Amino acid sequence: MNLVRHHHGQHRQPGPSAAVSAVVDGAAQIGESRDAARRFLESLQAVHGFPVSRRAMGAVELVVSELVTNAHKYAPGPCLLTLEVSEGAVAVTVWDSSTALPLILPPDPGRVGQHGLEIVMAVCRSFEMHREPVGKRIRAAVVLADDPGGDLAGHQPM
């Protein structure tokens, strides 16, 4: 899977500074999508100086995994994954070819499976679904640095 970098800027929030996109085609690339998201966040931190908490790193990987998996399961053909930094958060956007919006089921601890979107919504600052002229677009934003103690990925506490 090849990530395409859209724009790099030296400016910090609130404007967008970095974005990447990739076409994801097939179940084998779901893991690659998670890895690509982690590399993107590591680059944001190491190269651009954005703080990225461990929680944010895990949450973004989870959101990417859930949204790309759903696109693979419920829509024919490849999907498009985009990661973009804006206003202190990373927006994970997945476009797929199906116009059917996913059902978000109410919490039910007795239900086996189908908790993915419920979990995504719990870890995200925002969640949106939109039908497009072809397919749909789902976007979820995860705050990058929300740990008051500075628990940043790749940094050891003193």
Rank of each mutant, 00 (worst) to 15 (best):
A153H: 11
D25H: 13
H130A: 14
H155M: 13
P78L: 04
V92C: 02
L3R: 14
P133K: 02
V60N: 11
M158Q: 15
S53M: 05
H115R: 10
I30K: 08
V94L: 03
Q156V: 10
M158R: 13
H11A: 15
M121W: 00
L144Y: 01
D147T: 07
S43T: 15
A100V: 13
W95V: 08
P133D: 11
D96V: 01
A89M: 04
L41F: 03
V92K: 00
E87F: 00
V63H: 07
G77H: 06
V68W: 05
M129Y: 00
A75S: 12
D25Q: 13
R55E: 13
P78M: 04
M129D: 07
M129V: 08
F40L: 05
V92M: 01
D151N: 13
L152T: 10
V112R: 15
E84P: 01
Q10D: 13
C79D: 09
H72N: 11
R131Y: 00
V123T: 03
L44G: 10
L80Q: 11
I119W: 00
Q10R: 15
T82D: 11
P102V: 00
S65K: 13
V134L: 11
T82C: 07
S33R: 08
T93N: 08
A141E: 15
H48C: 05
A22D: 10
D96T: 02
A75I: 03
I30S: 10
V134K: 12
H72E: 15
G31H: 10
I104G: 13
V4W: 14
L152S: 09
N2C: 09
A27M: 06
S65H: 14
A37G: 12
H130T: 09
A153Q: 11
T69P: 06
A100R: 15
G110I: 02
V64S: 08
G135H: 05
S86P: 00
R34F: 02
V85I: 07
D147I: 02
V24K: 13
G31Y: 05
S86L: 06
A122R: 04
Y74P: 07
E42L: 10
R55K: 12
R139D: 07
L144V: 01
L44D: 09
W95A: 06
A22M: 10
L3G: 13
R111C: 06
L152W: 13
A19I: 04
H6T: 08
D108H: 08
G26F: 03
E132N: 02
K136T: 04
V4Y: 15
A141H: 05
